[in-house]
Design a protein around this nucleic acid. Structure first.
Lengths: 341, 341
DNA sequence: AAAGGATACGAAAACGGTTTCGTGTTAATA
DNA sequence: TATTAACACGAAACCGTTTTCGTATCCTTT
């Protein structure tokens, strides 16, 4: 026995009153007599009436949905941020629609356009690698021009005027290098991404500045640029065999872990012979052998902040044309020391 | 210069025609003259007209959204499944709303009720631990009784009649045990969850059946039941110190990894002295030292299948009251051998 | 008794579309 | 020339709400 959802109209017909009366009665409006109100409310309860979200959205021009577009979901940092977003949004009565851009510009564009047509009240997103490469942000601009609030996190761009949440990557990288130097390391390698990523660049800048401040000359030969997927034998092994270094700063976790594995195979002791520090303090850092010292990015907090900024914009009036309406929040990363240093 | 979305009404007024004419023209209905059609289409293109999703949803009583409710998002297996769902759904023009139940019964109920009021066309979900514990599935039944399609995956229950996607956990566990036995192991421990989980139970059953088939007596003392978070010193160390065993089957990845760490500390060689096999072939298995042999659950495929089943139900008529309308698909797990065996 | 004010409700518009049906104009046919 | 069919478009209902405004009824008041 299928029991489809009941509507105001049904209740009205059943009880011989008008739809408006039912609507008001259910909101406890005292425009309706106590008697009628109670009768209607009882009936509604009995048949488990719940207002239709879509109809309300149409009426209010507010969906209470927020759109999240991220490059990847099987990725510890992004899921952590997402958890923060979801938790906070839920608290404030919002639901979250997730689209995965898969690091593709086109998918990002398609998904945004799809959602921008009334499905959501605002966007939270991290740019795909391809988008950052192409340097084309028209889809973002279109969205903001339509008055849809947008919050960028982690992978951001200066070319779009909107709220942003970032990490103090540069300082964090500097701290990491300082730590390595202070523990006596002198030749510090950098493992970074081959493709251009906003965050990689900032971390590299921090790496270089810290070297400089510590009076260590920057050596391009000690920088290893890796693709996301790679064969150890082809890429890192030659690097290890032809360079001399006693520490590694990696812009992510995986590169560091793989470096540690290789170092282990090559008979190097960690951290005595070589230290490692990674970015993105995820599962791998905690469970690797040895455990990896890592820059914690506090993704959950980041997601929370992003969601708060977005929902505040959604719910409050602001002057879209005034750049002063937009803020960039900086989440302070912290270095978690483990066995690899 | 904010450029809000334009509607049919605007176009109609601007061009001096009726709304119906505009609607038809944009759908290329040949009820409208070629001239008028082209004029309207040009105008719409110029002002970048896009129909409002909400209005269409209200009219069609179809949102093209599917709701996904999972216990946790910072969890490799679930995100993998989610990726499969998202990919497939996107291909078929659906968006995905995610809610995280956080292993809580109440959140699961609230989220379901929230979404069931018109926000989505169907649900895909894995039960929260608490829900399985309480054995209360009224919220699921309510949803199906309303004619909203539901697909359960991984953490399922027999008490709800709906489509399901599961893994052949029992057989997979048996295979794993067989492998251990065949490599000469004789005392095989089981690391499982303390809380009742459908999947843990199935894996344990497989473990016992395989022991039996191999003529090894089941020994309750070799079963370690752990909470999700635990201190090695308090729980696993005593277990290691008071039992003698030469292999471990773990119902998840983390318990296995932590076991390997401890074994390492205790001076045991892996896999010579002790072998490990885990479930959930995630990041940890691939990057741990040594790498962990693991039962791959093919989450992405699972998600894809779930999404396909759901969308097929959403788009096609079926007899909700006929149990024969519902299927349970089994995804075959496969054992990935690595260094730990 | 007439006027005024509550009280309690309904009609209707609005949100932004889709779709059915009706109708005026023109052109083709008997 | 009268009839009819095709063509091109508009009116209106509908999806399920909310909300404004109008009004019938009754009770007070002078």
């Amino acid at each position: 026995m299928i029991q489809k959802k009941i509507t105001l109209k049904h209740i009205a017909r059943e009880l011989g009153v008008s739809i408006s009366t039912v609507s008001k009665a259910l909101k406890n409006s005292n425009e309706i007599s106590r008697d009628t109100r109670e009768k209607i409310q009882a009936f509604a309860r009995l048949y488990n009436y719940k207002p239709n979200n879509i109809a309300i959205s149409l009426k209010n021009k507010r969906t209470r949905n927020i759109g999240v577009i991220i490059p990847d979901i099987v990725h510890h940092f992004f899921t952590t941020v997402f958890r923060g977003i979801e938790k906070y949004a839920n608290q404030r009565g919002y639901n979250v629609i997730v689209c995965v851009s898969d690091e593709s510009f086109d998918k990002e564009v398609i998904n945004m356009e799809m959602l921008a047509n009334g499905s959501i009240d605002g966007f939270i997103m991290a740019l795909s690698a391809e988008t950052q490469d192409k340097n084309d942000f028209n889809h973002l601009k279109q969205v903001t021009e339509q008055g849809i609030p947008l919050v960028l996190f982690d992978r951001v761009t200066e070319q779009v005027v909107c709220d942003k949440v970032v990490i103090n990557d540069e300082e964090a990288a500097m701290q990491a290098v300082d730590l390595l130097v202070n523990s006596g390391k002198e030749r510090i390698a950098l493992f970074t991404t081959e493709t251009y990523l906003n965050v990689s660049e900032k971390r590299e800048r921090g790496y270089r500045r810290a070297l400089e401040q510590n009076g260590i000359p920057y050596d391009e030969d000690l920088v290893l640029r890796l693709p996301f997927q790679f064969e150890e034998e082809d890429l890192s092994r030659p690097f290890f065999e032809t360079r001399r270094f006693d520490a590694v700063l990696s812009v992510n976790e995986v590169f560091a872990i793989r470096g540690m594995r290789l170092a282990g195979k090559l008979g190097l002791r960690i951290p005595q012979d070589i230290s490692f520090i990674g970015f993105t303090d995820g599962i791998l850092s905690k469970y690797s052998m040895p455990t990896l010292s890592s820059v914690a990015q506090h993704g959950e907090q980041m997601g929370e902040v992003a969601a708060r900024m977005l929902i505040d914009k959604v719910e409050n009036e602001y002057d879209e044309t005034d750049p002063g309406s937009y803020r960039t929040e900086v989440i302070r990363a912290s270095l978690v020391q483990r066995e690899s240093t």
